[in-house]
Design a protein around this nucleic acid. Structure first.
Lengths: 339, 339
DNA sequence: CTGTTAGCGCCTTCAA
DNA sequence: TTGAAGGCGCTAACAG
């Protein structure tokens, strides 16, 4: 119920009638005679001894803890990432600290700077915006760090990035292949990491596939509400397809389409990005570009572990390829090939 | 980029020409002369000194860390909880460790037992099943713990619980009020914490409101797929309303209804439980019983902090009242009163 | 193979 | 008000 006096190493040693060093050795699997081993184990068991993580980490200089920083713990966009990071980190024998920057740059920086107190051995951060202050904080960080996103090439930091431009093109190609040509693009704020990348992807695909005929819209945020808000303007153009910069925006658009009696996918195809769990949940299911958030999370965790193992290794960048998950929102009945 | 030698207290002391004790005092806001304070601060700044969290926690016996254990990090059912816990914990100056039991009792127990190494000051656990082994692990735990769920009254542990029976009744009453009488209930596995409670709530409401005419179904899991799987059997009875034991099941039912051309809410009302973020996202919006997961998370965090502050206080149980969020899935157009 | 000992970096009596 | 010194619990030389 409440914390009482925990047994210590020396108590175990006393009970076993051996030195603390011997206990430590047995516990850490270092050479010891069979007899010693049994005596120590017996004492450990009878006392219910567990080594103190605090003392151990002070001595060995490691905490066995890693931090994951995301803008919003509850956002479905990050759940795939969180799950994957949690799994890899745990398998490697580390604990995971979850920090949220509450979508505030200042908070993200505070978290990064706070790491200098050494409460964890490394950090994975998925910053909402890749601004100078964040990059500065990363530079002065004395701990291993991995960025999920695309820092300037000049910054020597491990990073895992999605190829959102390729993802957008995948979606565009799919829409064109299924006969859509009046395509609207609904982006979120273009001063964010995802915003700029997805805009670039659309511009490129638009030029290549539609001779620049695509319509661009920028919602106030990457949220369902922002999607609903802007949907009116978007649908007034009577597009035959809407490509949204993330699933949440797409859900917002779908709701407005639904209330206007516009049938998806017959009258209007809708495609999202991120392929969140929700995309498979709504009716009709939302076709979405999967940017490999799980893969990126796992890759980031592995990069971090690699750097911790070898701090001198050169900074590495991993790019995860996107794929398209086709569901009902963009095709009448048949299922197109996936990935 | 990589961790290099961090300055220590004694280095600061040397630079300032004072003793380590004085530096410690200044840093911890204990009485010190103005001159001493300025000298120390100067030295701290010039060295970029940050106290070592590991050493500090060894000395003071606290880690300033709390653990939250949930069955699945990515499940939308837990996002409200996580967000609320994260916020309260952070405001109190603690860091949050996120552990997932991967929906395995054994893993949850391992996490609880692992806490005896003292890597955190307390734990909040939302166990999937309230089984003996979990309760045993809680009993032998030497750290403050708060359970989200309903342990047997005899177990003296702080707990925060939802009143799911009341929630189910709320939903039933709403359906009856809006003219539905052929009501089907789709539960998940009844050997889980939510399963039993929701079953009890339905049975009670069914007796009271429908004279026991309600149909009961048990899906294989609390998932969308399980909902889709069982939806066929459920809809074959031609109910005019389906109450689902959680939102995910409801989404599954809605998808099948949609593909069968059954209109929601005109032909069929659908109500879920949990009021996840997704409920507001789908079209039509899903009416859902909100069991106050955010409120429960916040309450749990506060209980934990209270117990840490006073380990002797008697165990407390907090019950959070449910409310109904009415959306389109259960009412043609108008919005009924909320909460 | 085992025991002794010196810290890891910090806080906190205890004297001065 | 300030300094000296002793641990918190553990690991890692170093002797034996």
């Amino acid at each position: 119920m409440t914390l009482s006096a925990r047994p210590t190493l020396s108590q175990v040693a006393d009970l076993a009638g051996v030195s603390v060093a011997s206990v430590s050795r047995v516990l850490n699997g270092l050479p010891a005679s069979p007899e010693m081993t049994t005596r120590v184990r017996a004492a450990v068991d009878s006392l219910g001894y567990t080594p103190d993580a605090r003392a151990r980490s002070l001595k060995v200089g490691r905490t066995e803890q890693l931090v994951l920083v995301v803008p919003d713990v509850g956002n479905p966009v990050y759940t795939g990432l969180m799950r994957a990071v949690a799994a890899v980190v745990k398998d490697a024998g580390y604990r995971l600290l979850l920090s949220t920057g509450n979508s505030e740059v200042a908070e993200e920086i505070a978290i990064l700077d706070g790491l200098s107190s050494g409460y964890a051995d490394g950090v994975i951060i998925s910053p909402l915006r890749m601004t100078e202050p964040i990059l500065d904080a990363l530079q002065r960080l004395r701990h291993p760090a991995v960025v999920i996103g695309t820092p300037p090439a000049a910054v020597p930091v491990d990073a895992v990035q999605a190829d959102s431009a390729a993802g957008v093109e995948l979606a565009m190609q799919h829409l064109v292949n299924t006969g859509r040509h009046r395509i609207a693009f609904v982006n979120g704020p273009v001063d964010t990491v995802p915003g700029v990348a997805r805009q670039r992807g659309f511009d490129r695909a638009d030029t290549r596939l539609l001779a620049g005929a695509g319509r661009r819209h920028a919602a106030a945020a990457f949220t369902v509400d922002a999607g609903r808000e802007i949907a009116g303007r978007v649908l007034d153009d009577r597009p035959d397809a809407v490509l949204c910069a993330n699933d949440l925006l797409a859900f917002g658009v779908m709701r407005v389409a639904h209330s206007r009696g516009i049938r998806v996918p017959d009258d209007l195809a809708v495609v999202g990005i991120d392929d969140t769990d929700l995309a498979a949940v709504v009716s009709p299911g939302l076709t979405s570009v999967n940017l490999g958030s799980g893969e990126r999370g796992a890759a980031a965790a592995r990069l971090l572990l690699a750097r911790i193992a070898d701090p001198e290794r050169p900074a590495e960048r991993v790019v995860v390829d996107p794929w398209l998950t086709v569901r009902e929102s963009s095709t009448p009945a048949r299922q197109e090939g996936v990935r």
